[in-house]
């Protein structure tokens, strides 16, 4: 029998210059190749289809688009699991560790997406631990105190707990805000993304994560792949399998791609005259305790969120991050 052709629109929250957008396109290419051109996914940039990125899940569940990749933090205040599944404090440092983390909490994340009316497929975009970019020298937590940083979501709470102030500014105003000193710094994903927005031109100090102690955010799943449930259920089983395996393949491909780019762009920052420093040993305890407290405060929001956090304790221990594991265990008691 002649197989039906499926044309899907995919919403993302990236613009075309973002490496993650390449991961999305790579995924679409894989699906197209493996289905012999029977499943075509057209990837759209942030806002290109008219709805704000925070509304991507609503648009998917209504069938305005068939599929999407989504950053869970956009729903942080609506659902504590969504907050925890995005960028959050923690020790996870690279792709392999992240894969283990996803396995540990996958059921909980999938059911959170279900509450928003979409079908969870899997992680698709890997995100490196985040850096803190500043216009003034940073040598440790003492320099963070009193500064004004652009940060959102859990990062805002994290930096507040360290004594900084968090403000919201839209992306379009960040460059000039750094240039003119309206803000002292910002947190905006990894070296690559920060470089591409031109921040290296106007901010010359970077606080970078180290293994065992990231700053605000550990290596996080930057985006999950989701489908409209009706569309997914109608998709033939073999194509479903292809979508799932392509998602896993793109995730792995992107993990390497993004990690390598991040190394490359770290060097570009340094070449542009940036001073890249790490936190001194004596600050680690405070980072861990602030991070664990923050996560625990989300655990109190719902039984699912609590489950999520409880799974982190053995996971971190298994990965060798004893101090983190102990700290969170202490907070959750």
């Amino acid at each position: 029998a002649q197989a039906q052709t499926f044309n899907f629109k995919m919403a993302t929250f990236y613009v075309a210059g973002d490496p993650a957008f390449d991961v999305a396109n790579h995924f679409a290419k894989l699906v197209k190749e493996k289905t012999g051109g029977k499943v075509n996914i057209e990837v759209f940039q942030a806002g290109e289809l008219g709805f704000p990125v925070v509304e991507i899940l609503e648009a998917t569940s209504r069938g305005v688009i068939e599929t999407a990749i989504f950053y869970t933090s956009y729903k942080a205040a609506q659902d504590a699991v969504m907050a925890l599944a995005g960028g959050r404090p923690g020790p996870v440092f690279n792709f392999d560790e992240q894969v283990k983390y996803v396995k540990a909490v996958e059921d909980i994340v999938a059911s959170a997406f279900k509450r928003f009316g979409v079908t969870y497929i899997g992680p698709i975009v890997y995100g490196e631990p985040e850096i803190l970019v500043s216009t003034k020298p940073l040598t440790g937590i003492k320099d963070i105190k009193g500064r004004i940083f652009r940060a959102s979501g859990m990062a805002a709470e994290f930096y507040k707990a360290l004594g900084a102030q968090a403000v919201m500014l839209p992306a379009g105003e960040l460059y000039q805000a750094l240039q003119l000193g309206t803000i002292d710094g910002l947190e905006w994903t990894d070296f690559t993304a920060n470089y591409k927005l031109g921040f290296y031109e106007v901010a010359k100090h970077v606080l970078e994560p180290t293994k065992g102690v990231n700053l605000h955010s550990e290596a996080a799943v930057h985006a999950f792949l989701v489908f409209n449930p009706a569309v997914w259920d109608k998709l033939p089983k073999e194509y479903q399998e292809i979508v799932k395996s392509s998602c896993a393949e793109a995730y792995k491909w992107g993990g390497e791609f993004i990690a390598n780019l991040n190394k490359e762009y770290r060097q570009k920052w340094i070449d542009a005259g940036a001073k890249v420093v790490q936190l001194p040993q004596e600050d680690l305890d405070q980072i861990i305790s602030v991070g664990a407290k923050l996560i625990a405060s989300y655990a109190a929001k719902s039984p699912d969120a609590k489950d999520f956090c409880l799974k982190l304790i053995p996971l971190w221990k298994e990965l060798g991050y004893e101090r983190w594991s102990k700290a969170l265990e202490g907070e959750l008691k």
Partner: peptide, 17 residues
Amino acid sequence: PSFNMIVYGSVAGVSVG
């Protein structure tokens, strides 16, 4: 400041300054 230039800069990967 020009918002279009910021969008162009990040999409094309060139210096905003």
